[in-house]
């Protein structure tokens, strides 16, 4: 069998290229900020920094695992080994040129990471994972180029805002105002955790990118940015999938080299 080379995503335009970059695990995403691990833990609000992880089962090595070939095949992630709880982080991405959008998050997570469960809706995207692994992943996702302080929200609940106009500082609407604009520093600062419990210290997540920069970085096709129809390959790819599925459900025996 010929080795299959993953192509990740078709297309020649910037949203298509960005999708490829985000999905390709060989590409190291640009780190744009460094929010400390303790602050990431605070933002998520599942435990206090320094507090021990809560366990839901004894470490795997201590337990008596059933004799299961699949269990032998899969190397458990660290949190599973230790019996951590499954916890979550959830992001909201504005339609107005957020760096990444919900489906691309799912594709990226599943392409780059192991041991997570992810759910995709129009206004929010959740990752669930064993707690200690989640924290590492969350830090990456807050630090890297898929996050913009103004257009990405860390929101465990009441996520409304992805479709709203931006505010006067260019921030995506948040009814619970988990983050505010620091006019002096010209940075976005979190004052509440992802479920709006006030933080005991401010957590700065940096300066928002300019709109021109975001238009280059986004994965979103838009009529006032890069229209999907301007990317012939992406358009053809979508039509081809639809066509093949249609034919497959109708008269699969008529396939001839499609």
């Amino acid at each position: 069998m010929v080795a299959y080379k993953r192509q990740f995503y078709p297309g020649t335009t910037s949203p298509a290229k960005n999708r490829r970059r985000y999905m390709d695990p060989k590409i190291n995403l640009k780190k744009l900020r460094d929010v400390s691990m303790d602050d990431v833990v605070r933002l998520m609000g599942h435990r206090n920094p320094g507090e021990a992880y809560k366990s839901i089962h004894p470490p795997i090595e201590e337990g008596k695992e059933p004799d299961c070939p699949i269990r032998k095949l899969v190397t458990p992630i660290d949190g599973a080994k230790h019996g951590d709880r499954v916890r979550y982080i959830q992001f909201t991405d504005s339609v107005y040129f957020a760096p990444i959008s919900p489906y691309q998050r799912a594709w990226m997570y599943l392409s780059r990471y192991r041991g997570l469960d992810t759910g995709t809706l129009s206004g929010r995207q959740i990752i669930e994972m064993r707690e200690r692994d989640l924290e590492k992943l969350a830090k990456e996702l807050i630090d890297d180029e898929t996050f913009d302080p103004a257009l990405t929200g860390i929101r465990g609940a009441t996520v409304h805002g992805h479709a709203c106009r931006l505010d006067e500082h260019g921030l995506m609407f948040d009814a619970w105002q988990r983050y505010v604009w620091d006019a002096d520093k010209k940075e976005v600062v979190y004052v509440k955790d992802q479920v709006a419990i006030p933080l005991d210290r401010k957590i700065y997540v940096g300066k928002p990118a300019s709109m021109s920069d975001l238009k280059k970085r986004t994965t979103i096709f838009r009529a006032d940015g890069v229209d999907m129809r301007d990317d012939k390959e992406v358009t053809m790819y979508g039509l081809r999938i639809h066509k093949l599925r249609t034919l497959g459900g109708f008269q699969p025996f008529k396939f001839k080299g499609e």
């Binding site: 489906y103 759910g119 995709t120 809706l121 979103i220 096709f221 999907m228 790819y237 249609t246």
Partner: peptide, 28 residues
Amino acid sequence: LQHKERTGRLGFYGFDLQDQCGSANSFA
């Protein structure tokens, strides 16, 4: 399918279930 591809988002989970496999049953 195009909506999901274009905007990177669609509806709630149900759309994954129903609308992303629907092409196949549309002419069945």
